[in-house]
Nucleic acid binder design. Sequence first.
RNA 1: GGCCCCAUGGUCUAGUGGUUAGGACGUCGCCCUUUCAAGGCGAAGAUCGCCGGUUCGAGCCCGGCUGGGGCUACCA
Length: 481
Amino acid sequence: MTVRVRFAPSPTGALHPGSARTVLFNFLFAHREGGTFILRIEDTDRARLGEGSLESILEGLRWLGLGWDEGPDVGGPHAPYFQSERLEIYRDHVDRLLEAGSAYPCFCTRERLDALRQEQQKAGRPTRYDRLCAGLPADEVSARVEAGEPHVVRMRVPAGKTTVPDLVRGDLEFDNGSQDDQVILKSDGYPTYHLASTVDDHLMEITHVIRGDEWLASSPKQVMLYAMLGWSPPAFVHLPLVLGPDRAKLSKRHGAAAVLEYRDMGYLPQAMNNFLALLGWSPGTEQEFYDLEGLSRAFDLKRIQTSPAVFDQAKLDSVNGLHIRAMPVAELAAALRPFVPDLPDDLLLKATPLIRERIQRLTEAGPLLGFLAHRPTQLPDDIVPKLKEASREEAAGQAVTALQAVRRLFDSGPLGPSLEEPMRKAAAEIGWKAGDLFMTTRIALTGSRVTPPLLESAALLGQAECLVRLDYAIQEVGRRA
RNA sequence: GGCCCCAUGGUCUAGUGGUUAGGACGUCGCCCUUUCAAGGCGAAGAUCGCCGGUUCGAGCCCGGCUGGGGCUACCA
């Protein structure tokens, strides 16, 4: 049996980290087993369809590099992959259930249902449909249906117990009494999740349903639906929830944005995958650095965690830094491209090795390299070092002398690391610590205390530009003397 | 309320009856050092949620409790 798995998002919003983790596990399992990864769009809730949602989900998946073998764009043997285009299929299966008595039309209004629910809640009883319509005479039912009375179709949950085969948690047994007579076909003719995904999973020959833990409690309904339709259920794997820092299910309100926002925050897709893979799964070794290939090779359903995991952005930062440092320079430069828009390509390529060890997110490149594109306008006070036994004015005077010495050095030959010794000598001559001279020069050239290594940075700036900036600094500092 | 899931340092985790409970992130310190990083070394931090049971022996097995979470829609 070849493995077939699917990710089945509902286009009601963006792809969030929790869902991304679900996609990842499906993807990894499919690749590990040489199986097929299917993308199916569950757009059966017309009211909640989100503008642009589908596109952003697809873009998120593409960004992560989690491509699908069947689904939108690529098609496949079980097309269409949009549930909204499969309505007749669901209708047929609902008819089958109706004929078998496994389902029944329900004419109850929302008002009645709401009141019922409230009443049950107040009485401290489980909130379940009271089956008012479950025993309606057949002729009355058909008469009301033919008269066009609005109705839904509910599944008729039988007595007994239902076992959900979960590969990670083992067989889970549920009392059917805990399950509601779920609506499977809405009054607008669209199926609900449980019916649609059961039918599609069977028709699309899905072998493993790997999804979030939030589905666990309703899994028995689907297993019952399989039984009612005479099918055997797939294997289930319920992934532990991804939690926010407050230990509640990760959601927008944690600021945990769409996956694409992580892209904009300067995270690498490979780092995102690496980090997400380790949330709720572990290889059982001490290796923590993986690319997608490595993950596919190491992935094993049996090592999926049962307990929920908190999404720790500090850890993500760290993993991202690891991946940044592992990238070839040209590749990193390309990734950096959008984050430093006013830096020419050639400069960026040369600057990349200088910052690669200094950033965890691509966004940090901007502040670090800004000096290459912009002259410092304001020189912070600490361009003048704090010197023992010298007033601020005296120190500023010395700083002018120091900068003039640096200017002579820079004027006299090529810039670069070879200037280190001359710089040190110059510092010694005026009685400064080398570090102070480097810092003063650094600030003169960049306007900042935190930059890539000074002499390399100066080389990128070029001699002419360095001299302009030194002159400006000499003049500015002179004013403070 | 009902049903269900879960429980190893702050966080992610290794561990499957006998370990000084290991690693990573984070934190702190030291080294390196022209800043910041990276890197190296080191430290603090866990009565393995609690109570009981099984066993010569329990983080690992069983039960209860507590705590946290999920679901409880004509949403997925």
